[in-house]
Computed example of a mutant assay.
Amino acid sequence: MAVAVSRDLTVQVLEDVNAAKLTDRQQALRAAIQRGEPKCLGVSQVMLGLMVMSYSIPLHYVEYTEVISLGVPWWSGLMFITAGVVAIILDKHCTMKILQVCLIVSVVSTVLAVVALIIYSVDLGKNPEAPCIKAAHGHCNNEHYSTRLSRGVKSSLLLFTLAQTAVSAVLCFLLFRQRRSFGPYSYLTEGASSGPQPLIPPSLN
């Protein structure tokens, strides 16, 4: 910390070296994060979450299976949207606290996406497509079309969730790397000053 004393005994604390270093590292952090395009990844997560939730609506009109009874499309879609929103906020406000929050949310999103993938796979294995039993008019029975629709929707949800897993994993990797690179400088935030601050000495009389 540099100190300057003027002739009238006014003391000025000049710019702190730590503050300048912190500013430089924050700018470098912002540049590094923006190179990773968290906004694009966040928008992708939001879109995938909305698609998962909207595509699951037809499943409520067919036979209920594990996917619907456990509410997989809803909690996984909401988690994807939350992770995407936090990533978009990180792009606008690059701080270590938001980066850590985004990293935690992305890790949770990745874990839940893997859990959802397992549930989708088990559900598809346990509920095969019903055979086509043709009626007198020559068309298959309703159960065949119902199970066929259900499996098609679940296969789409499986692909969307797989894409979300990849996006979340990539974002986790990028955020962890940035946190590891810039983490040692986060302790400077509390001690850093924004600029010169005049200190008035007590009266000598």
Rank of each mutant, 00 (worst) to 15 (best):
G77V: 04
Q164L: 11
H137A: 10
E63K: 13
K154R: 12
C94E: 09
Q197S: 11
L99D: 01
W74Y: 13
L103K: 06
G77T: 07
P184N: 03
A32N: 14
S44R: 08
I119S: 02
R30E: 12
L29R: 00
L117A: 11
L90C: 02
F173V: 05
P201L: 00
L162P: 07
R148C: 06
Q12G: 04
E129H: 04
S76I: 13
V11K: 01
G138A: 03
R30P: 05
K134S: 11
A166G: 12
S121N: 15
C94R: 10
L117F: 08
L188E: 09
E143G: 00
K92E: 15
T23W: 15
R25I: 06
F176A: 15
R148G: 12
L188T: 07
A32L: 12
V11E: 07
G71E: 12
N141L: 03
G42P: 01
L90Q: 03
M79N: 07
V86T: 02
P128C: 01
P202Y: 02
G195P: 08
E143R: 10
L162H: 10
V115G: 07
S168R: 01
C102R: 01
F176W: 05
S121F: 13
Q45M: 14
K97Y: 12
Q27C: 11
G71N: 12
F182K: 10
I119R: 13
S106H: 09
S56W: 01
P58C: 04
A20T: 09
S193H: 12
R148S: 14
V122D: 08
M53C: 03
L9K: 06
L41E: 02
R25D: 12
A166P: 02
E129G: 14
